[in-house]
Nucleic acid binder design. Structure first.
Length: 489
RNA sequence: GCUGGCGUAGCUCAGUUGGUUAGAGCACUAGAUUGUGGAUCUAGGGGUCGCAGGUUCGAAUCCCGCCGCCAGUACCA
């Protein structure tokens, strides 16, 4: 386009680029990004208190690292590319496989290796509400021990994290692959069907006994009219395996001890030994049946689990999906080294957690104070004020715009949901004073009065005019006072 | 992937059996108020009606294909 041609809105429009997200990818705007940061830092602090060590690995891995034993069925969910050198590379779909890679690659890492890692993973599934193609996992793992202390500690660390985040009541559901395998062989189900049976049983809670039976046998038609093919099991096999679970879920209640009695009776002590062991360790950690339950229908989709598997669900959002999952995977590292290195891990789905909390929208203050600017020839004074407040640990936003009217600047502060505004104009400069305006009390006032002049008058009366030298201590007092109120509520 | 529904302004939607220049509310911008965020009032900007064909004198409206979104379902290492 020639420079002489005028740029009309219409012509500009045709040249602009549509701002949009790639399907399944999303942005986090300040409010959510802030909360996510808070969640992450709480978990990090808890994990470090357990002695877990941080690692970071690249988002991109060689395709063969990720494919491994998972087989073709899952490969289509991997984002894969050609590198500039024409090598097959792919975005990681979890943090567990990269962990297996690094413990194989760096043989001198301390064993057992306790590590935590937070980062994005990518899966090319169909996006759903609360489910994206890029999401954040926060993993904690122990590699190099078959001791069930490892299970106990990762469960304990996750429980502590979720409690400190404040997600409300939740339950850690635990099962063992060995129990499931025993159940499957006892029901006379062929090994090649085992995986599919597990997937169907995993939905027991969601779709109910009847539908599980149908999916195991002739199939069913869902509420949208879609046909779901059945597995074609014989009626008695399906009855055998589901009936055990029906009893298991109803009669022993939520007591781990009773569930263990029931499971050992049906599947033998050998199949349940890891759960029996784990139960004792959990008890000594003070994690009772109200928090950690044994649920024989939990399967988890992952093929690589070999022992106990875990899943965390929020009690007040039973159909929300699990916010964390994990288990023991004793064979994963051997893919790289040929040597078996037992491991156990637990992964928190940070974005799901965020979604679960964000639906109860709260108004977090992202900024404590906005310092407004009245006198353009005294910018150094405003800078100084802002720096002093920051040095006192107050989150201070100095107004950086060029808008001169105080009205506009206060609108800006309001939009940020700041708690206070500091106003220093020519009057204040003359008297060595500053004005502190509480934006919160002003907004409660606004809901009570509809007359503008009345509102302005009253809100100005509530402003605090203090000596310039007292600003920091007074501001600090106001900010801390409010914090205390919040924790007491 | 499968089944169904829906695509009109940033958002929620209206738009008569096809008929001039496509509307409303909210949001946004400016002013009323040049030192006070709300509310109110006034004015303003913003649309190739998802995209591409077809039927027609004439299509946001009817037909076909594609794309996207939503719900259910499958899958989810």
């Amino acid at each position: 386009m020639k420079e002489s041609e005028p740029i009309t809105p219409a012509s500009r429009k045709s040249e602009t680029i549509e701002p949009q997200n790639v399907k399944g990818f999303r942005d986090l705007l300040p409010r959510d990004a802030y909360r996510k940061n808070e969640i992450v830092s709480v978990i990090r602090r808890v994990y470090e208190s357990y002695g877990f060590l941080p690692v970071e690995t690249p988002g991109l891995e060689y395709l063969e690292i990720l494919l491994g034993e998972y087989g073709d069925e899952n490969t289509k969910q991997i984002f894969r590319f050609k590198s500039p050198e024409e090598q097959d590379v792919a975005l990681r779909f979890d943090l567990t496989v990269p962990l297996a890679r690094i413990v194989a690659q760096y043989a001198d890492l301390p064993k057992p290796f306790k590590r935590y890692q937070v980062g994005s993973v990518w899966r090319a599934d169909k996006p759903d509400p609360g489910r994206f193609r890029e999401f954040t996992q926060f993993d904690v793992d122990v590699v190099g021990t078959s001791s069930q202390l490892a299970e106990a500690e990762v469960i304990s660390a996750v429980v502590k994290s979720l409690r400190e985040i404040g997600v409300g009541d939740f339950t850690v559901n635990v099962n063992s692959r060995r129990v499931l395998n025993a159940a499957i062989s006892k029901a006379g189900i062929a090994p090649h069907n085992a995986k599919k049976v597990l997937r169907i049983l995993d939905k027991f809670f969601k779709i109910g006994h009847q539908n599980v039976m149908l999916e195991l046998t002739e199939g069913r038609i869902d509420s949208s009219g879609d046909k779901i093919p059945g597995l074609g099991l014989k009626e008695n096999s399906a009855t055998l395996i589901t009936s055990v679970f029906v009893i298991a879920l109803s009669s022993p209640g939520t007591s781990r001890k009773k569930m263990l009695d029931f499971l050992t009776e049906h599947f033998g002590e050998e199949s349940c030994s890891d759960l029996i062991n784990l139960d004792e360790l959990l008890e000594s950690l003070g994690l009772g049946s109200n928090v950690v339950r044994f649920d024989p229908t939990i399967a988890r989709g992952l093929d690589y689990y070999t022992g106990p598997v875990f899943e965390v669900n929020l009690n007040n959002k039973p159909l929300f999906g699990s916010v964390a999952g994990g288990g023991r995977y004793d064979n994963l590292v051997s893919r790289f080294t040929g040597v078996q290195l037992p491991a156990v891990g637990f992964s928190i789905g940070v974005d799901r957690l965020l979604a679960a909390i964000s639906s109860e929208a709260t108004n977090a203050n992202l900024v404590d104070v906005v310092v407004t600017i009245m006198e353009r020839n005294k910018l150094d004074e405003y800078l100084k004020i802002a720096e002093e407040l920051r040095a006192a640990g107050i989150r201070t936003d100095l107004y950086l715009g060029t808008e001169k009217s105080l009205r506009k600047q206060l609108q800006y502060a309001d939009k940020l949901n700041a708690r206070f505004a500091v106003i220093v104009g020519s009057n204040e400069f003359q008297n060595g004073m500053v004005t502190i305006k509480s934006l919160e009390s002003g907004s409660t006032l606004a809901s009570e009065t509809s007359d503008r002049t009345q509102w302005l008058k009253e809100s100005r009366e509530k402003q605090l005019e203090i000596a310039r030298r007292d600003l920091v201590t007074e501001m600090k007092r106001l900010v801390d006072k409010r914090k205390l109120l919040i924790t007491l509520e």
